[in-house]
Design a protein around this nucleic acid. Structure first.
Length: 297
DNA sequence: GGTATGGTGGGTCGTAGTGG
DNA sequence: CCACTACGACCCACCATACC
């Protein structure tokens, strides 16, 4: 197909002729200084724009050069974002919860007193791992100048115009005098098994395997997820329900149980369609979706 | 018609391995 | 050593759908 232009600027001009609204702040430059000047200009006008932005994007103008530069993974080599400094806020760390993942990895999550950052109310943030809380980076170097994170601390968080809230620092002056360093659990909070950390690794893992309910549920979730068997209608909530179901004809502990569900139901008086939240239609669709995955690529 | 849920899309950070 | 890829774990917005 022939393009209406052979440059980025030309393409956008064509879109404008077609009747689309285009951004008047888009401009062509031939030097890095020019780009940075425009970046600063847009940053200073940020509040007057009438829409939210988190930065600007620089693109190579020639479409031919764009083609030649191509992509690495999911990122083009011919375009790059230049983000404005992140919006920050401070709040109180009210707790640290430990989540147990599919592989048994224990991931700490910060529970925060609600605070608005960049237009959304943030109450959770990842703390990544044991060392991040202690103030140690991924290659042993200190982060936050070695300051650790404690429950009760006033912490500064950012949402760098991005999405993921991040705990970036601790306000030491506001640390309660009676606070203690966070003790990362060495027993799995879900099943009580030992949680061990291999030499040289960042994650601590539950050794409970399938006896750990958290791991069992996460593995089931993974099994039915889009990247695996992709069983529609069996999402997180439904897996939780079937895993904890009292009735043997409804219970799903392992992937195999998914495929015997319909037969077990047929022989049982406890009907799924009488369960709150289910109906005839959703049950029919669920069984159809399971049947559909008895054979997969 | 309101609500819960799932699907989809848009993201970040950390870990680990590979190949030039 | 560095660029790159892959993947795990996590968060948020928006929309369609089925249930009640």
């Amino acid at each position: 197909a022939t393009m209406p232009a052979d440059t980025q600027m030309g393409m956008v001009a064509a879109f404008e002729r077609f009747g689309f609204r285009v951004n008047p702040l888009m401009k062509l430059f031939d030097s890095v200084e020019g780009l940075l000047e425009q970046y600063r200009l847009i940053e200073s006008n940020r509040a007057t724009l009438g829409y939210d932005i988190d930065g600007v994007v620089y693109k190579v103008n020639s479409l031919e050069l764009q083609q030649r530069l191509g992509f690495v993974s999911r990122s083009p080599r011919w375009a790059i974002a230049h983000k404005f400094p992140a919006e920050k806020a401070t709040t109180i760390l009210t707790g640290i919860d430990i989540q147990v993942g599919r592989t048994g990895a224990l991931t700490p999550v910060a529970r925060l007193a609600p605070v608005t950052v960049g237009g959304v109310v943030v109450t959770n943030a990842t703390l990544h791992n044991e060392d991040y809380i202690k103030g140690i980076g991924n290659s042993g170097q200190p982060i936050r100048e070695g300051r650790d994170i404690r429950i009760g601390d006033t912490v500064s968080i950012q949402r760098a115009g991005d999405v993921i809230p991040q705990v970036i620092d601790v306000v030491m002056e506001k640390r309660p005098p009676d606070s203690v360093p966070y003790a990362f659990p060495v027993l799995c909070p879900a099943c009580g098994s030992h949680a061990v950390r291999e030499e040289g690794e960042a994650v601590r893992r539950c050794t409970g395997g399938l006896i750990c309910p958290a791991q069992a549920v996460e593995r089931l979730r993974h099994f039915v997820s889009r990247g695996a068997f992709d069983i529609e209608g069996l999402g997180e909530k439904q897996i939780e329900f079937f895993f904890h179901a009292e009735d043997p004809s409804l219970r799903i502990y392992s992937p195999a149980d998914i495929f015997t569900l319909k037969a077990r139901q047929a022989a049982s008086l406890t009907k799924l369609e009488n369960v709150d939240g289910f109906g005839a239609t959703s049950v029919r669709k669920l069984f159809a979706a399971i049947d559909d995955r008895r054979q997969v690529e």
